[in-house]
Nucleic acid binder design. Structure first.
Length: 476
RNA sequence: CGGGGUGUGGCGCAGCCUGGUUAGCGCACCUGCCUUGGGAGCAGGGGGUCGGAGGUUCAAAUCCUCUCACCCCGACCA
């Protein structure tokens, strides 16, 4: 039905790109690997920012801004960090026509520059905690990029906190992961599994990394957010110490956490269909469109008056699109707004005026309902939140249906290389087993879920004792 | 870095092998008419020197040499 969009069943990856481009969310830029976020895409990012920013502030955080450029020497202070990030950094070597004394890295993440500043700001336990977030762009020189999911430059927020004790840092790390989980589920309508990353998958420089993992419609996993307990690694690298109540000196404990424009990719791949984007109502800046339908002039007069009155009424509470363009026929408009994911469409034609009704169409189910004119405002107010909830439940059911308990290596391999999905399997904790699975199946351990059952078992790979199941899956 | 491929109006392509009128088609765009309950139709119109450089030739989008860019697969990353 939709022109120009490859069906999911034909080529999922192509479908994704088609939706992004056709719905005018993003476009390729002249620079390889970087994209332009167009108004339709940026509107989603603005809402993500709005909601998350409030959630950060409600949990005691404040915003600040640190510079884009980081001295090379800073990047090299934390051993694991430099090893993890140096290969994928862009580096500025010239400025003002001169070669620089010291090269400047375009931030791939801001731990180093921020901790160089925290050193100046933290003297005493009275200066702690520091709970700072920043909204920024970062750059990672990825070899293979995809719109929203992995671009060289991307937008994100990064929280960087400093604490007096290890316990407090761990508490903060988990608290923010939970904020992400709530945000993903209640706003993006994306069910996620929160858990701890294995050693090999954790952030370069972290003690523990936690993540939320979502399942896309092709049953692959997408890491949707991470929260890191950095321990004293960065405090030691940048020599950030404070004096405690007892007068002793000790290193500060750190956390960092972030989500990025990748969430827009997650949103698309979780809910959208072969007709284009499907947005959960909370992520739609404009949740409603009104399409008038008429043939003759006298019909037009009546329909437009009727539609305009409704437009005014609904506009009191919602941002409504009134599509009164003359050059397009209704069918074209339907297709266009479906492509762009507008949650609710109201069609008004002569018959509706006659019967004192309107036609209401939900984007997620495509179901059409005839609604009494008097009731429409109330029905809209009731439908939007219901749609939000049903989208989450539908995604949750899909995730559940494609998650499999497995107790042998062969069974794991069969699922991963066959139908796909999440595999719940025992793992002994040994990185060697993790690597073996990855090499045999391309699946990695997504995380060790917090809410996993207490269950003794045998590692699916080596047979040694395991404390519980972890999630294996192919991932983006 | 290895393998494969592509560069021709905004987008998608044909033409190239076998050089030869004014470089063609679909979509999009503009104007008018006509239409409007699932992406209408007709007529008219604007827009490209064929990625770049050099060469062969009376003549090059087409043949030759060099060069640049991008895409796909792999490796890498997630």
């Amino acid at each position: 039905m939709a022109k120009n969009i490859t069906p999911r069943a034909t080529d999922y990856s192509k479908w994704y790109t088609d939706v992004v481009i056709q719905a005018k969310m993003a476009d390729y830029s002249p620079v390889k690997g970087s994209m332009v976020i167009r108004p339709n895409g940026y509107a989603i990012w603005e809402l993500i920012q709005k909601y998350l920013d409030q959630m950060f502030k409600d949990t005691g955080h404040v915003n600040a801004y640190f510079p884009l450029l980081i001295p090379e020497s800073f990047m090299k202070k934390e051993a694991e960090h430099v090893e993890g990030f140096a290969p994928e950094c862009a580096v500025v070597t010239h400025g003002g026509g001169q070669e620089l004394e010291e090269s400047l890295y375009i931030r791939p993440t801001s731990e180093t520059i921020i901790w160089s500043m925290y050193k100046k700001w933290i003297m005493s336990y009275r200066d702690l905690p520091i709970l700072i977030n920043q909204w920024a762009n970062v750059m990672r020189w990825e070899m293979r990029t995809r719109l929203f999911l992995r671009t060289s430059e991307f937008l994100w927020q990064e929280g960087h906190t400093a604490h007096a004790t290890a316990e407090e840092a761990e508490e903060e790390t988990l608290k923010m992961l939970n904020v992400y989980k709530i945000f993903a589920e209640e706003y993006l309508a994306i069910p996620v599994i929160a858990g701890r990353k294995s050693e090999s998958e954790k952030f370069a420089g972290a003690v523990h990394t936690y993540s939320i993992e979502a399942m896309m419609q092709d049953k692959k996993a997408l890491q949707a957010g991470t929260s890191h307990n950095l321990g004293q690694n960065f405090a030691k690298a940048f020599d950030v110490q404070f004096q405690n109540k007892e007068g002793g000196r000790q290193y500060v404990y750190a956390t960092s956490w972030g989500v990025s424009t990748r969430l827009i990719g997650a949103l698309i791949m979780t809910h959208s269909d072969d007709n284009g984007l499907v947005l959960p109502p909370k992520l739609a800046q404009r949740p409603l469109v009104i399409v008038p339908i008429y043939r003759k002039d006298d019909e037009k007069t009546k329909v437009m008056a009727y539609a305009d009155a409704l437009y005014r009424e609904l506009s009191e509470k919602h941002k409504v699109i009134f599509d009164d363009r003359e050059q397009y026929k209704p069918g074209y408009k339907f297709a266009e707004w479906e492509l762009q994911g507008i949650p609710l469409r109201i069609e008004i034609g002569p018959r509706d005026v006659e019967n004192n009704k309107v036609v209401l169409v939900r984007r997620d189910t495509m179901k059409k309902d005839f609604v009494d004119r008097q009731a429409i405002a109330a029905v809209v107010d009731e439908t939007l939140p219901r749609m939000q909830g049903e989208m989450l439940e539908r995604a949750r059911a899909f995730q559940k249906a494609n998650t499999h308990k497995v107790d042998s290596f062969d069974a794991l391999k069969e699922i991963v290389s066959g139908d796909g999905g999440f595999v719940n399997a025992h793992w002994c904790g040994d990185a060697a087993c993790e690597t073996r699975v990855k090499e045999a199946t391309k699946a990695t351990i997504r995380n060790i879920p917090f809410d996993r059952e207490e269950e003794k078992g045998a590692c699916v790979c080596c047979g040694k004792p395991s404390e519980g199941r972890v999630i294996f899956s192919k991932a983006y």
